[in-house]
Design a protein around this nucleic acid. Structure first.
Length: 1096
RNA sequence: GCGCGGGUGGCUUAGUCGGUUAGAGCACCCGGCUGAUAACCGGGAGGUCGCAGGUUCAAGUCCUGCCUCGCGCACCA
């Protein structure tokens, strides 16, 4: 049944695309889960991507890490359901549509019709869905895209509403103001991400303004870069610890005064002491110094008396203290306009300043601010404001003769601009809804502590830092396309939060009964705007309630994914209970403040629980130059470039081995190429070697057997290596060190398996007769390859499936993890690796560390042999009569192998170490340093450079060795044995546990006629073989060979015979020395011998 | 500005508790080996381990400051 067929040449792309078809027809993904239907659940939650952009290689990276963990856990016996998801709301979608329909302001959207606009958004979301699906399938990310959760679905929205109502009922939801960057042209406020897109350096007038104290003839100086906020001024902030001075102007300013403003001689000004030089342009005398705290409470004249009503505030137009005030720029006094700065707003709320707008949503001054300003766009008012302040007496008529402006100064700084219209943004206090995250801060921190973060510093550091500074979450957006905020409100502020469709229907019915007209509210009412805006509800005291006209931050949507994907609590109770909190999530580190946070924020406020147990936070993907990949930079790598060239296996393997998952990955296309050539081509060729012979011989692993402990050392060695590598691989997986796991495994495939085991085993399979040795090799290859396939499968799922199927008849993705399947054990949980259960089900071959160590040494000696030959100018094919192994462990089991590798007639063990070796002494600094202290270097040099190491060692052993009055003991030194000069030898160091020994290899360089003949035979053979290859002859084809030689050693008959058989000749003639070769004969020269030959 | 993570030959990177010759891969050069694959083996060239101080007998590794890149936060009068 499981008899392998031979493997063809590798065409990775074809292999993968054919396999995709097969998976599809077999429904392989679904059956891989059904296969584990009785397994313990391992819950993965997909972070929903937005499908309104084309997927790039960076998405492939994230999906690889998601996929590999899910596949790995499935193989371990867990049931790993993977529901796909789509994030479909939010500003990015709206902007995309606005661009397409050329609707660049809210006004134009409303003219166009919110209904139609939202419909366009709804459709736009799926623009690239097909691309995503194709990418996802091609890269073999197994996720259920046929039943995904979609944030715009009514069910999903209803769950979000329910969640919000939980918060509302717990008192976490409130209505307030937030100062946001706002574009009056588009009527839109922006998230910080969008603001970051639009920073531009601009030069603007900044002004130093005098605020005249009411109770004395002095003014406090304050600075601002936004003169338009001055009419809104209601306070001045000073640092309580900062030192301020009051100073008097002594003489008029000089000629160099530039711009408006000024001060009268004798006028008194107050500002931070540190900033006098920076700010003042007059000669002044300091009258007094005092801390900021003594200014607090002083009141001053409003600059624009009518602009802001007092509204009962006792603190308006007084000096306030704020610890964030610094003296790095300005005057050390911060002008505070409550509605137009975040600090200002917070301070204003704290101190009870009037919260009153002087600027409308259209960006122009409101009526009543000042006759010369009213109705004008604020950014056009700089000159007017400066002129008003500069007038004698100033804008309020209560200032000094010189006016209220002290100075103006051009100021260059970065300022946010609307990235769509290029207009400067205004920081503007807007009505907004908040979730009181500050109330649950301690819980957030506790839950975060329970999460296993990879890497841990993201949890403790970046995310922990964020949580420690948590602010209330502004969840409302004045937008159209999103989950509507389900809060209805009366004009006098009574509120209702609706948590379900049925509740909405009930409330609508009540309202209708009370006589308020309402549209129909069927079971499948669309929960989007503008439908929901149409409902008028009834307050408890009979007033009409209208919906707060906001949609929610789309991050709120995705933050609800853990339960909204099941339509909890309306449906899917079981699924939810069984899958919350989830076991594993994985996204880019840029989600720290995004999804990682909102998931936790929602679960904490709604369920008082964490949302996920493990979180893998991935590093950013950079291009080959180290620049972040982004659409705007145009440096996005198209994954298909690689899918269509090296294939998804190589692409995925490359991404995992290129670095730790959390490190930034510089995506290098050459790296994918290299991975393909090294890892996958090598693996394929090993497989091909096995499969071709297995097919030829009709090898069937089930109908023959070969006891592992009966197999040759080489087999037992590779099996033991496999055990070691697999164990380490698994260990690294558990520790999230996927890169390390895969690098080590790759090294195993290339070095141990291909370059040693297969190379050393080739001849074993040439045997045409059925031999125990051949069977041993075939069983070994079978075991190694199938185990490798299962280890590699989670990372690169294609080629290994093909191999595994051909060797075993079974799909690799239905098979078990070689280290055990604890997930299938009753009572298992996904929370930790069950050692006992794993051990009971593991299928690894026996581990033999001693054998591995011996083989290591053998390989080192083989390499040493090649080095010896190069140093001594002896070609590799010319045999040596003897090779001596000096010291070291018993390697007699490998002597034959070594003799072949070293091309020597016989290996001998030399017991007289001193015949080929001498000793060297080296200091052991760790032991020596505490004794010798500052003299350690001198002592060390004395030990190193001793003329007579043997004598010194004898003294040390006798306890009589002192250097610089320090008794040198055996533990203070290391004894190294190295080869003696004058021998063709190399010494290698062997570490066995914590002891090191030195083994030398010595080659006998003397020639004999037999050796020369043998060597020549090998050179001829090799040339003829190369010729056969260039002639593209079949392996079993025979040739007729003729050879002519000049200045050759005399050839032994046995060697001529050997050449004849090795090169598969039907006729072979060695001509006498002196016979002339034909003109076209191929020829080569080796060690002074000229050889000609013809192949027919 | 604050926080986190980096900076090691041309490129990508490893480097444990501080231990005296900083290790690999790619690319390059020379040589070898090969019915062994786009492979392999040996050798070579290429490194002020970001800079400057400090601790130490000894620093890529620990400390301080600075430069620089990335990310995040705060963006401020």
């Amino acid at each position: 049944m499981a008899q392998p067929s031979s493997a063809g040449e590798l065409d990775a792309v074809r292999l993968e695309t054919e396999l995709l078809e097969q998976w599809k027809s077999e429904n392989a993904f679904v059956s891989s889960i059904q296969n584990r239907k009785d397994g313990a659940p391992f819950i993965f939650l997909e972070g929903p991507p937005t499908a309104n952009g084309k997927p790039g290689i960076h998405h492939v990276v994230a999906r690889t890490y998601k996929d590999l963990v899910c596949r790995w856990k499935t193989m371990e016996g867990f049931r790993v359901e993977r529901k796909g998801g789509w994030d479909t709301h939010g500003l990015p979608v709206e902007i995309e549509v606005q661009k397409r329909l050329d609707l660049m302001s809210n006004e134009s959207i409303e003219q166009f019709g919110m209904d139609a606009f939202n419909q366009a958004c709804r459709e736009s979301v799926w623009t690239y869905e097909a691309s995503w699906r194709e990418m996802t399938e091609r890269m073999a990310y197994w996720v259920d895209l046929d039943n995904p959760y979609v944030t715009l679905d009514n069910n999903y929205v209803e769950s979000c509403w329910w969640a919000l109502k939980q918060m509302f009922d717990k008192g976490y939801l409130y209505r307030g103001h937030k100062v946001l960057p706002y574009c009056p042209q588009t009527g839109t406020s922006y998230s910080s991400h969008e603001v970051a897109l639009g920073y531009k350096e601009v030069e603007e007038p900044s002004v130093y303004v005098k605020f005249k104290l009411t109770d004395e003839d002095a003014s406090i100086l304050a600075w601002t870069t936004t003169p338009w906020t001055l009419p809104g001024n209601v306070g001045l902030a000073v640092g309580p610890e900062v030192t301020y001075v009051r100073c008097r102007v002594k003489e008029a300013a000089g000629e160099s005064w530039a711009g408006a403003g000024g001060a009268d001689v004798g006028e008194e000004l107050i500002l931070a002491k540190d900033l006098m030089k920076e700010v003042l342009r007059h000669h002044v005398e300091v009258i007094e110094e005092f801390p900021g705290s003594s200014l607090v409470g002083r009141s001053y004249e409003p600059l624009f008396p009518d602009a802001v009503p007092r509204m009962g505030s006792t603190t308006a137009w007084t000096v306030l203290e704020a610890d964030w005030v610094t003296t790095t720029d300005g005057t050390g006094v911060v002008h505070t306009a409550v509605m137009y700065g975040e600090d200002d707003y917070n301070l204003g709320m704290e101190a009870g300043l009037p919260a009153h707008h002087t600027v409308g949503m259209d960006g122009s001054f409101l009526e009543g601010t000042h006759p010369e300003l009213d109705g004008t766009y604020v950014k056009d008012c700089d000159a007017t404001i400066i002129a008003l302040l500069s007038a004698s007496g100033g804008s309020n008529g209560k200032g000094p003769q010189s006016g209220l402006l002290y100075r103006e100064k051009e100021y260059a700084h970065d300022y946010p601009h609307c990235w769509r219209t290029d207009h400067p943004l205004l920081y503007y206090a807007m009505d907004s809804w908040f979730v009181r995250m500050t109330a649950v801060k301690e819980r957030l921190l506790e839950f975060n502590d329970e999460v296993e973060w990879a890497p841990d510093w993201v949890g403790e550091g970046r995310f922990g830092e964020w949580l420690r500074n948590v602010k209330d979450w502004a969840i409302s957006r004045e937008r159209y396309w999103g989950t509507p905020l389900p809060v209805w409100r009366t004009e006098d502020g009574q509120m209702k939060c609706i948590g379900s469709i049925s509740e909405l229907q009930e409330e609508v019915a009540n309202a209708v009964a009370a006589g308020f007209e309402n549209p129909e509210c069927p079971d499948d009412v669309d929960l989007h705007r503008p439908i929901v805006d149409g409902f008028t509800l009834l307050s408890d005291d009979g007033q009409p309630m209208h919906r707060e006209p906001f949609v929610m931050d789309c991050w709120f949507d995705s933050g609800c994914a853990s339960f909204a994907q099941w339509h909890h609590p309306f449906d899917g109770g079981e699924q939810f209970d069984a899958s919350f909190p989830v076991d594993y999530i994985c996204e880019g580190v840029d989600q720290t403040r995004g999804w990682f946070y909102t998931l936790l924020a929602v679960s904490t406020t709604v369920f008082d629980s964490k949302a996920y147990k493990r979180c893998l936070s991935l590093g950013l993907i950079l291009d080959a130059e180290g620049k972040k990949m982004s659409k705007s930079r145009g440096n996005i790598v198209d994954p298909w470039d690689h899918f269509n060239r090296e294939g998804a296996d190589a692409t995925r393997w490359y991404m995992v081995t290129a670095g730790a998952p959390w490190n930034p990955l510089k995506f290098d296309s050459n790296g994918v190429r290299e991975t393909y050539a090294k890892m996958f081509l090598t693996l394929w060729n090993v497989y091909k070697f096995h499969a071709d012979y297995a097919a030829l011989d009709g090898f069937d692993p089930e109908s023959s057997s070969s006891e592992p402990d009966q197999r040759p050392e080489l087999d037992r060695w590779i099996l033991s290596r496999l055990n070691t590598v697999a164990t380490g691989y698994h260990e690294s997986f558990v520790n999230w060190q996927f890169h390390k796991a895969c690098r080590d495994l790759e090294d195993f495939v290339v070095n141990d398996l291909s370059n040693w085991y297969v190379r050393r085993s080739r001849r074993r399979l040439w045997d045409e007769a059925e031999s125990g040795d051949k069977l041993a090799c075939q069983h070994t290859l079978h075991e190694v390859l199938t185990t490798l396939c299962r280890l590699i499968a989670p990372v690169s799922p294609f080629m290994v499936d093909t191999i595994h199927r051909n060797l075993t008849g079974l799909a690799v993705h239905q098979s078990d993890w070689p280290l055990g399947i604890p997930g299938t054990i009753e009572g298992a949980t996904a929370d930790e690796w069950d050692e006992v259960a794993a051990k009971a089900t593991a299928t690894l071959p026996p581990h033999d560390p001693a054998l591995e160590a011996s083989m290591d040494l053998v390989r080192e000696l083989a390499e040493a042999g090649r080095r010896v030959r190069i140093d001594n100018n002896r070609r590799q094919r010319l045999p040596c009569s003897k090779g001596f192994i000096v010291a070291g462990p018993d390697l007699s089991a490998f002597h034959d192998l070594l003799a072949e590798e070293l091309n020597v007639e016989i290996i001998q063990v030399e017991n007289d170490l001193d015949r080929f070796q001498r000793i060297e002494l080296a200091p052991n600094f760790r032991a020596l340093a505490p004794k010798a202290r500052a003299n350690v270097n001198d002592v060390a040099n004395a030990i190193k450079s001793t003329e007579d190491p043997v004598g010194l060692l004898a003294q040390i052993d006798a306890g009589t060795a002192t250097i610089m009055d320090i008794l040198i003991e055996r533990s203070d030194i290391e004894v190294k044995r190295v080869e003696r000069e004058g021998f063709a030898a190399q010494t290698v160091e062997v570490t066995h546990g914590d002891t090191t020994s030195h083994v030398s290899l010595v080659l006998d360089m003397n020639d004999t006629p037999e050796l020369l003949s043998k060597g020549m035979a090998r050179d001829i053979t090799r040339r003829v073989q190369a010729r056969r290859k260039t002639l593209d002859l079949a392996l079993e084809a025979t040739i007729e060979l003729e050879v002519w030689m000049e200045n050759a050693p005399s050839m032994m008959a046995a060697d001529e015979e050997w050449v004849a058989t090795e090169t598969r000749t039907s006729a072979c003639i060695f001509h006498q020395e002196g016979a002339a070769p034909p003109a076209g004969a191929e020829h080569f020269e080796v060690d002074g011998t000229l050889v000609y030959f013809t192949v027919v």
